[in-house]
Each structure stands twice: as structure tokens, then as C-alpha cells.
């Protein structure tokens, strides 16, 4: 599948969607398990976990788009892929709330 040039168009976005689901599921599971009241220093375990996950997602997307850019020749399809990947990386802004918003309320 990753050999298919079509995959390069969607790679970062698929990563974004997967990351989105993981974050949402982690948040819900963490609230259920009470990780939000378990503190490490001044920050709850759950927040640390979510921030770490969000950062990981950003790095994975950067890696994916870097790889796609390096592999592809400068064809129109590769240019569309680069734009789409860039948009997916920008869209990780959606996860910024994990830094400061109420975790379980």
C-alpha cells in the first residue's frame, strides 16, 4: 500500500485521524481510570500523557511528510501531497487544548 503514490496524498492525514482517535480515547479512558487526579508535580498524569501523545503525533506527521517529500519527484501529484501533508501538520493545532483545558469536567 505504501508503494502506491496515492498513499502519499493521504499519509499525514491518516496519521492525523489516527492521532485524533487515540487522544480522544486516552482522554476518556484516563478520566474513567482517575488519572486526572494522580499528580506528578503540579501536573496530572493524564495531562502529561496527553501532551506527550500530542507531541508524538506531531513528530510522526512531520516524519511522514518529510519521507513523502524525499521519495517523490516534483510531479503535480507530489506537490498536492506536500500541500495536503502540510495541512495535516497544521491541523494538529486541534490538539493544543491538552496543554491547559479542564481534563475531566
Amino acid at each position: 500500500m505504501s508503494g502506491n503514490p496515492l498513499f502519499g496524498l493521504f499519509a499525514a492525514w491518516i496519521g492525523w485521524a489516527g492521532g485524533f482517535l487515540i487522544l480522544y480515547a486516552l482522554q476518556a479512558t484516563g478520566c474513567r481510570a482517575g488519572w486526572d487526579s494522580h499528580m506528578i508535580g503540579a501536573v496530572s498524569t493524564l495531562r502529561l500523557l496527553l501532551v506527550a501523545t500530542a507531541l508524538t503525533i506531531v513528530f510522526v506527521l512531520l516524519g511522514l511528510s518529510w519521507k513523502a517529500r524525499r521519495n517523490g519527484p516534483a510531479s503535480p501529484l507530489a506537490r498536492i501531497g506536500a500541500l495536503a501533508n502540510g495541512a495535516a501538520i497544521l491541523a494538529t493545532l486541534c490538539f493544543a487544548g491538552v496543554l491547559w483545558l479542564g481534563m475531566c469536567a
Partner: peptide, 30 residues
């Protein structure tokens, strides 16, 4: 590229129909 972006983003906003069911704020923020 914009159409592709819409396609994926549109799968990440279904809970905006459910802001009033009591989901925690950080989840709503996504």
C-alpha cells in the same frame, strides 16, 4: 489538497453536535 483536508477534518468534528451532553472541555476542544 483542500478537498482532501476537508474530507479528513470532517471526520474530526462529529462531537460538535454533542457539546451539551457533558463531555469534558479538553475533549470538546479537539
Amino acid at each position: 489538497a483542500a478537498v482532501i483536508a476537508i474530507a479528513f477534518l470532517s471526520f474530526g468534528l462529529w462531537v460538535h453536535h454533542m457539546y451539551t451532553v457533558g463531555i469534558p472541555h479538553v475533549a470538546l476542544s479537539f
